[in-house]
Design a protein around this nucleic acid. Structure first.
Lengths: 230, 230
DNA sequence: GCAAAAGTGTTGTACTTACACCCATGG
DNA sequence: CCATGGGTGTAAGTACAACACTTTTGC
């Protein structure tokens, strides 16, 4: 126990819950698990865990992300703290939610199986325990804001992506169709992407060019006072 | 103690810190206090306190706001949770920050004096304890977003306000000048304000009309698919 | 009567939206 | 050869930015 100047105040359990998002099949997906402990055991739940003594909130979230995905350096952002008195029927727990963007191209499903986890289409979510559905809603609202003001959408891909896939992802995030030419215009006028030589032939006969997001171009873009906008 | 299914996990102290903002003299102000306890006793600090057993995060924040301002029903929004391991040198404390908008027209300074509190110009802030300066920055970023997408700016006023004052406030929040005619155009085209008969003669000889924000008009505005934008 | 702040419209520019056809290729 | 998805430009409309003068009144 760390020495404390504050010995006489109530202490609380703190949980960290992760909204792990991925993109596959033109749809957003959320990694869910069957809750492993009582109460609400076996109900659908976000990936979560209790915070431990010598870790920060971010470290706790990263630990959970690594446990369920096997990946490190995942893009992640805090959604907020949830502190209603009776939010967790198992006891008084304050929970801090994070959302995370995970490339699903070659997702290792062995960990997911081990933890009774499953990717669910964001539009077909089951009822989740406690206030987890609310956390998901809040995360999506925040994600939409972030995606439209910062280049975070590229974190849904391992590295390369095609413009048709990027547009499908954008439409999945905002749940609205988007004009193809206007979408491409926005991206090409910002000039932050590098087109590669080869094409993705999986989703069409003609094939779509692969692109990379170029962080150097983005730094320069920002340095000259411009702002990303999608 | 609430019965708990989670008996074996570490518990933490949770603090709530409030970024209490007000508008006076064409400038944003922040209510600060001299920290009353060790460590860092007498240093400048946000208004805060420890969360107690049977209250939610929001209730804890409202309690702090009431203690230092004497007001209830203050507009308030969560900024986020701060959980670095060594953020508080007095012990392991996770803090949840809220910002609040307080009308300063007839602010009761007796409570502030009692608690060694003082309104400071947001542009002349001293160094604050721990990560409180960071919390203020994060709160301002969030406030700017909220002000430009929802009609929260009116919470800085008791009730009535003049357009010149509203514009001064807007400029103080965004720290940039704004064209007078364009600003008024935006407001008048949304048609959410009611002009009153009388004028504020304090800040000019001619006097500026008072206005009220009309929540009924706003409901209708939203119902018809429009979105507030400043 | 003058200083000081309040109030008021128009025009050019930039951005956003809508829209249709040709291309490349695997089967 | 044809079905499927990939790629491309232009024109109209809308929103935003820039700009200067008149009005009111306390002193």
């Amino acid at each position: 126990m760390i020495p404390s100047y504050y010995p006489n105040n109530t202490r609380f359990l703190i949980a960290v819950d992760c909204i792990i998002l991925g993109f596959r099949n033109k749809e957003l997906h959320l990694l869910l698990t069957r809750r492993p402990v009582e109460p609400m055991k076996h109900e659908w739940s976000l990936m979560g865990g209790f915070m431990e003594e010598n870790e920060s909130l971010n470290m706790a979230a990263e630990k959970i992300l690594y446990r369920y995905t096997g990946q490190k350096d995942i893009y992640m952002e805090q959604v907020g703290a949830y502190g209603a008195v009776d939010r967790d029927t198992g006891g008084r727990v304050i929970s801090v939610a994070f959302y995370a963007l995970v490339p699903m191209e070659q997702f290792d499903t062995s960990l997911a199986r081990e933890y009774d986890a499953r990717w669910m289409n964001i539009n077909e979510l089951p009822h989740l325990v406690f206030d987890h559905n609310q956390m998901v809603q809040d995360a999506l609202t925040l994600l939409r804001y972030k995606v439209s003001t910062e280049p975070v959408i590229f974190n849904f891909f391992e590295e390369r992506f095609t413009l048709p896939a990027l547009q499908d992802l954008y439409e999945a995030i905002f749940q609205m169709p988007m004009d193809k030419r206007n979408f491409r215009k926005k991206l090409t006028t910002m000039n932050l992407l590098d087109r590669l030589e080869d094409k993705d032939k999986k989703s069409s006969k003609r094939g779509a060019y692969f692109y990379l997001f170029n962080p150097d171009k983005y730094s320069e873009f920002i340095r000259t006072g411009k702002r990303f906008s999608l």
